[in-house]
């Protein structure tokens, strides 16, 4: 007993890193267990390169959203409108591409739409001021409504080889989308760990009063963070559109917010803010991706899949709270 306490005390300076490491290790173990289970259940398909690439593709959209969500949660907020922004941005992309006949113009417009939608979230939250959950709950519905309005609730097909190439093209054997995810991950890791702005976001989430008194312009930060989240959702929307070659108001983007938040929390984000890592969130994303893929391969009915995902989110929060209670003492 005494020995344990002494050991913990001596290790204290490194304990933060120790904890993060421990959490990532337990996520890795969970991932390996999942891989083993599904590999055993469907040995014929699960470990084929094709299926692994499928998983990779499936997690690009979620991965981008989860990393952005991590930054939002670290700052002490939450963005549940991201799924709707994905849908909205694909619709804007499709409409503009159709009207102008230019895919680049469509892409630009789609990305811009996401940025603006995110900035709107930020402005409402800061200047309302409206609680982030409520604000983005409102815009989740509003943006989805807007996406439906753009073509009476119907999807819009997009024609254009450049977009198709983006969707099915590969580089060194890996689809472009996976490269995009890797690049985004590198950027997010550097951003959160090595930059002043990234570090200040942890301070902001840790205690906004302290951050403000230390001279961090917290309103500007908050608006920018939600704008970034909206932009990331639009990038995810671009990936979705390039794969479906259409603007989809809802299909493919519904429920993404749930998965993104689940991944971030699995990865160690504290809903109180100030804590969370990109690497952890990406491990969370892989777990969800493997789970989704495995459940489809093993023919788990959709309704059960929804049930499982909801349970996973709640479980992740419970684990997180338990850890917080323990470390708080």
């Amino acid at each position: 007993m005494t020995d344990t306490v002494t050991a913990t005390r001596e290790r204290a300076p490194a304990s933060l890193f120790g904890r993060i490491g421990a959490q990532n290790i337990s996520l890795l173990i969970a991932l390996v267990v999942l891989l083993a289970i599904f590999g055993a259940l469907r040995p014929d398909v699960f470990f084929t390169p094709r299926n692994l690439i499928n998983i990779g593709l499936a997690v690009t959209i979620l991965g981008i959203l989860a990393m952005a969500q991590t930054v939002v949660i670290v700052s002490g907020g939450l963005d549940i409108s991201v799924g709707s922004i994905v849908g909205l941005s694909t619709m804007v992309l499709a409409v503009v591409a159709q009207e102008t006949g230019s895919i680049p113009a469509g892409i630009l417009a789609g990305l811009l739409a996401g940025l603006v939608a995110g900035a709107v979230n930020g402005l409402i939250i800061v200047y309302g001021p409206v609680n982030a959950v409520i604000a983005t709950l409102g815009t989740m519905s509003a943006f989805r409504g807007l996406a439906y309005l753009m073509n009476n609730g119907n999807s819009i097909p997009i024609t254009g080889d450049s977009l198709r190439a983006l969707g099915i093209g590969t580089l060194f054997g890996l689809p472009f989308a996976i490269w995009l995810l890797i690049a985004a991950m590198a950027a997010f890791i550097v951003f959160t760990r090595e930059t002043v702005v990234g570090r200040n976001i942890y301070a902001l989430g840790g205690n906004p009063t302290v951050a403000r008194l230390a001279g961090i312009p917290i309103r500007r930060y908050q608006i920018s963070i939600y704008a970034m989240s909206g932009f990331a959702a639009a990038v995810a929307g671009l990936v979705l559109a390039s794969r479906t070659m259409s603007g989809q108001p809802a299909s493919g983007s519904q429920g993404l917010e749930l998965e993104a938040i689940t991944a971030a929390i699995l990865g160690g984000c504290a809903l109180q803010g100030g804590k969370g890592t990109i690497v952890g969130a990406m491990l969370g994303v892989l777990i969800i991706g493997v789970l989704n893929n495995g459940m489809i391969l093993t023919s788990v009915p959709t309704f059960y899949q929804l049930l499982a995902k909801g349970a996973l989110l709640i479980l992740a929060v419970i684990v997180q709270e338990r850890q917080r209670a323990r470390s708080g003492e």
Partner: peptide, 8 residues
């Protein structure tokens, strides 16, 4: 409450 990020 106002000066320090206690966890950091």
């Amino acid at each position: 409450q106002e000066a320090l990020l206690l966890m950091q």
